[in-house]
């Protein structure tokens, strides 16, 4: 008798019945997040869908007439040399900039972790580049690297490292490095602060135990710091990769993608194609390709983030 009563109190056991019961209990939550969800759908979801659609059209910016061309834009991209040049330049840009930001960020964090005088000052000072608008930093670096008035040339000349002034941002061979320097300067503080937080969460006793076990500084770094920092390193590097991939302001302000497109990345090219050349359809097709590349990183990040780093 008791069993029957218990069972009847459990509520509806059909799927729709359960869904209704669930909504009755939680409708307030959904009502509260609905405005934001709808807003995001309107400003993010809709443009994404439109971009996908636009990539199948020939759509000059100068005309309101769009012609459906199927996958022709994609065919054009995959058969063009510039696409592979862009992939190479984007990859080079990401690998070098992220590697430098990671290594320098880690070095700074390791030094800030030590008990140095003025630690608080340096910790704040190192965040300043991150707080300055990217475009402003880019303008400053353009000036620093200027062949006639820039500090960089003067310093290199005085040190005897170069014999005549060089136009860094005007040289197709090294212009990308000039931009990387600015991007690293801007992005490094974030990495340093994230790494510092990670380093501070490693218990000091592990280092003491390792020291007693006979570990030298390098062994402590290799066997304690790195394994303990692994999750933080992975997440920070992944985020930095995504941000460096979509970085636009620095490159555009410093070189506009030149000289002869040598500093252009996929993101720069999307802008150039769509808004400089007015080819919206082709620009959209580049965007869709960029979207899928970025999605790979985003999925990795989400998988790691939602699993709380357990899989690492």
């Amino acid at each position: 008798m008791g069993l029957t009563e218990d069972y009847s109190e459990r509520g509806p056991d059909t799927r729709s019945g359960q869904a209704i019961a669930y909504l009755q209990e939680n409708y307030r939550t959904y009502a509260l997040i609905a405005p934001v969800a709808l807003f995001l759908l309107a400003v993010v979801g809709y443009p994404i869908l439109q971009t996908f659609r636009l990539s199948l059209y020939e759509a000059p910016a100068s005309s309101s007439i769009k012609t459906f061309v199927g996958l022709q834009n994609y065919a054009q991209i995959f058969t063009s040399d510039i696409f592979y040049q862009l992939l190479w330049q984007t990859g080079r840009w990401i690998v070098v900039a992220v590697a430098l930001k990671t290594i320098l960020g880690l070095l700074i964090a390791l030094h800030l972790k030590g008990n140095i005088k003025g630690r608080k000052f340096f910790r704040t000072a190192f965040l300043i580049p991150w707080g300055i608008p990217y475009a402003i930093s880019a303008v400053v670096f353009r000036w620093i690297e200027h062949p006639q008035y820039g500090y960089l040339n003067s310093i290199l000349l005085k040190l005897g490292l170069i014999h005549e002034r060089i136009g860094i941002l005007g040289s197709p061979d090294i212009a990308w490095l000039g931009v990387v320097v600015a991007d690293v300067w801007i992005g490094m503080p974030f990495m340093a602060i994230i790494f510092l937080a990670g380093l501070q969460s490693i218990p000091e006793q592990l280092y003491e135990a390792a020291a007693v076990d006979g570990a030298e500084k390098w062994s402590q770094f290799r066997y304690i710091t790195l394994p303990q920092l692994k999750d933080v390193l992975f997440i920070a590097t992944l985020l930095s990769t995504i941000w460096t991939f979509v970085s636009f302001d620095v490159i555009w302000t410093m070189t506009g993608g030149g000289p002869v497109n040598t500093t252009a990345t996929l993101v720069i090219w999307i802008y150039k194609t769509a808004f400089d050349q007015g080819n919206l359809g082709l620009g959209a097709a580049y965007s869709v390709i960029g979207f899928f590349i970025l999605a790979v990183f985003a999925i990795i990040y989400l998988r790691v983030y939602t699993s709380g780093g357990e899989e690492l």
């Binding site: 218990p203 006793q205 135990a209 390792a210």
Partner: peptide, 20 residues
């Protein structure tokens, strides 16, 4: 002499085992 070179072994209050 650094701890590394003292040939001592220490057991800590919270063990300080290497978690990884």
């Amino acid at each position: 002499v650094r701890p590394q070179d003292r040939n001592i072994a220490m057991v800590f209050q919270n063990y300080a085992l290497y978690p990884h």
